[in-house]
Simulated scan of single mutants.
Amino acid sequence: MNHAHTHTPHHGASHGHHHEQMEGQAEILDLDAEVLAEHTASITAWLPLQTVPHHIVDLGCGTGAGTFALIDRFPDAHVTAVDTSAEHLQRLRTKACTLGVQERVRTVQADLDEAAWPDLGSPDLVWASASMHHMADPDRALRSVHDTLAPGGLFAVVELAGHPRFLPADAPAERPGLEERVHAAADRRQAEHMPHRGADWGPMLTAAGFTIEGERTIAVNLDGARSEAIGRYATGVLQRIRSVIADRLSSEDLTALDRLLDTSSPHSIARRDDLTVRTERTVWAARRN
């Protein structure tokens, strides 16, 4: 999944709640793709490819941020987009039709924690953005990617440094440092569910038989005035974080956070003139020899 989202397990959730959850997640993924499009494009341009790829696999594709960035970068390539979520894949197919590239995109619904992966062919490039940390057994998943890739093929792993930051350290005035406390609570919760989030994938890739051909960290710092999507993105990301850490915040912090998330309020985060998007993404380019 190409995302900056908080992991929210849905096992045991009602169908209606699950659908609502997936819709919310899909909207964040779409906003993430829009807000960070230039940075994703810069990663695809940086990849140390030996030949132009014709078959690409996007592992944990979400709603298609990586899929469509790769389709744009490599106009002769076909992409196999793989995800566990039927809802996300349907959204991706709809976008492909809207863009007129449906003939170049194949979707595969699969749980990549299963020992046996579906037949994904022999791609020249496998892309995994913010998805490897979801794997229950990342080492096994890396070996599966190695075996799937064509000899000489490239595996691009993009990892998030954490949730994006949106406010200065001294904001909001009534609860300075609120965002750092919110993120600290989210990070503690995520460490329980996804211990590999933010991991250094280099040693694990080498252990799986890959040769690391490049590593790069992309720093993102976007002014909120640049696009109204940034306000919606900040609101959506913080709403999702709130939904899973509300019980870990003080009542004062929760009140201040809700003030920022009230889209009808003049104090809404989307209306602040100090709104930015600050985050980092690290990409490893690993070759199968």
Rank of each mutant, 00 (worst) to 15 (best):
M1Y: 01
N2P: 04
H7V: 14
H15Y: 07
H15L: 01
H17G: 09
E20W: 11
M22T: 02
E23F: 13
G24M: 14
G24A: 15
G24V: 02
Q25H: 15
A26L: 02
I28R: 03
L29H: 05
E34C: 06
E38V: 11
T40L: 03
L47P: 04
L49A: 01
L49K: 02
L49Y: 08
L49R: 04
V52I: 13
H55F: 08
V57A: 15
D58V: 08
G60Y: 02
G60H: 01
G64C: 10
G66W: 12
T67W: 14
A69S: 15
L70N: 01
I71G: 04
I71E: 00
D72Q: 12
P75T: 15
V79E: 05
A81V: 12
A81W: 10
D83N: 07
E87A: 07
T94V: 15
K95Y: 05
L99F: 09
V101W: 09
R104F: 09
R104S: 06
A116F: 07
W117N: 12
D124V: 11
L125V: 01
V126T: 08
V126K: 02
H134R: 02
A136L: 12
D137A: 07
P138I: 03
R140L: 11
R140S: 14
R143E: 11
V145I: 15
H146T: 00
T148H: 00
L154P: 03
A156T: 10
E159I: 05
L160R: 04
L160T: 08
F166D: 09
L167F: 07
D170P: 08
R175G: 03
E180V: 02
A185L: 02
R188C: 05
R189F: 11
H193P: 03
M194F: 13
M194P: 06
M194Y: 12
R197Q: 09
G202R: 00
P203L: 01
P203E: 06
M204P: 01
T206M: 09
G209D: 14
E213W: 06
E215W: 03
R216G: 01
T217A: 03
T217S: 11
A219Q: 13
V220S: 09
N221E: 13
A225D: 12
S227T: 03
E228P: 06
E228C: 12
A229F: 01
Y233K: 03
S243R: 10
V244C: 10
L249K: 03
L249H: 04
L254I: 07
A256Y: 04
D258K: 05
D258R: 02
L261A: 13
D262F: 09
R272K: 07
D274P: 05
V277D: 06
R278V: 03
T282S: 09
W284M: 10
A286H: 07
